[in-house]
């Protein structure tokens, strides 16, 4: 009997002593952490994508709490709502940032951009890009090995087997920029999502001279400068034989889309144009390109429209 009592007492004594020691040790070695870090982390989407440039959501939360002004911080996944929530926690005013989305600036499908050789090395865009100019005559365009798709943490991209190009699923894209960093040719760009996801952009990054670019790819920007002249808002710049539309200045009037002789300028998610059948040939006839070719272009134009629509249907 006494053995049992002694055992119980001894164990209790050990327990109490250990508890006391632990208490003091915990006091002694306590690390102070701003409780707001936890709160902020709670508010973040916990995707740990690194799109903000910090190591995971916790790292971002620490940086946010430390910062005096969080205007320059943006969680690309959560966007404005999350940032305003974070601002509320930290007592900062937050301006609403425009949502952005990844945009592929290359339309060099197998059809538009015939292959001149066959890449047989390790399936990595970076390796191919450091080796040579790629499987086609265009040394700037998409290499089609899908490194961006591998980089995407949100299943927002896939390789289209028909075209050989990656496709961005707009609804899933959180604009974290992982694909932008992954692409060795810098084809993908984060652009303003635009009202109702309507966007106008040059779907080409070819800086070669017009003739070379056109030979390599039917839908390359040849740097003719027509769009620059046409744009009423000075939103288009031409540099190194390549047009670029500044999404902050673009008012989505779509005039550039019509004048582009190679259909390199894309419009997304717009309702179908009414006057298109009449306007397209007139625009085409202005071009110095031979007439039959222009007709081919006009026929091709509707082909691009459905792809744009496909994107939207996919999103829904």
């Amino acid at each position: 009997m006494s053995i049992i009592v002694i055992t119980i007492l001894a164990l209790c004594a050990i327990g109490v002593t250990a508890a006391i020691i632990l208490f003091f040790v915990a006091q002694k070695f306590k690390v102070y952490e701003d409780p707001r870090i936890d709160e902020v982390e709670e508010a973040l989407p916990a995707a740990n994508c690194g799109g903000c440039g910090y190591p995971g959501c916790r790292g971002f939360a620490e940086a946010l709490v430390k910062a005096d002004n969080i205007d320059n911080f943006l969680c690309p996944v959560g966007g404005a709502p999350v940032m305003s929530h974070v601002g509320a926690i930290l007592g900062h005013e937050v301006k609403a940032a425009e949502p952005t989305v990844a945009v592929l600036r290359c339309n060099g499908t197998c059809e538009n951009r015939p292959k001149t050789n066959q890449y047989d090395g390790a399936p990595s865009c970076t390796i191919a890009a450091s080796l040579y100019s790629g499987e086609t005559g265009c040394q700037f365009g998409c290499l089609g090995l899908g490194e961006c798709v591998d980089a995407c943490n949100f299943d927002a991209m896939y390789m289209d087997k028909e075209t050989g190009l990656p496709v961005i699923i707009e609804d899933k894209c959180v604009s974290c920029g992982a694909c932008v960093k992954a692409c060795p040719n810098h084809i993908i760009e984060l652009r303003k999502k635009g009202p109702k996801s309507r966007r106008v952009f040059v779907s080409c990054v070819n800086k070669d001279k017009g003739a070379i670019a056109k030979k390599a790819c039917d839908v390359a920007c040849i740097g003719c400068g027509k769009c620059v002249k046409e744009c009423p808002f000075d939103a288009i710049t031409l540099e190194n034989n390549l047009a670029y539309i500044d999404y902050n200045k673009c008012k989505l009037c779509r005039k550039c889309v019509i004048v582009c002789p190679t259909n390199a300028i894309h419009e997304l998610n717009f309702p179908p144009r009414k006057e298109k059948p009449t306007e397209k040939p007139t625009a085409a006839s202005v071009k110095p390109v031979a007439a039959p070719k222009a007709e081919v272009k006009a026929e091709e134009a509707p082909k691009i429209e459905p792809t744009a629509n496909d994107d939207t249907t996919e999103n829904k």
Partner: peptide
């Protein structure tokens, strides 16, 4: 395995 392809990449 494309060992050298990747090593060259890493080297760069």
């Amino acid at each position: 395995r494309p060992l050298l392809d990747y090593i060259r990449l890493g080297k760069g």
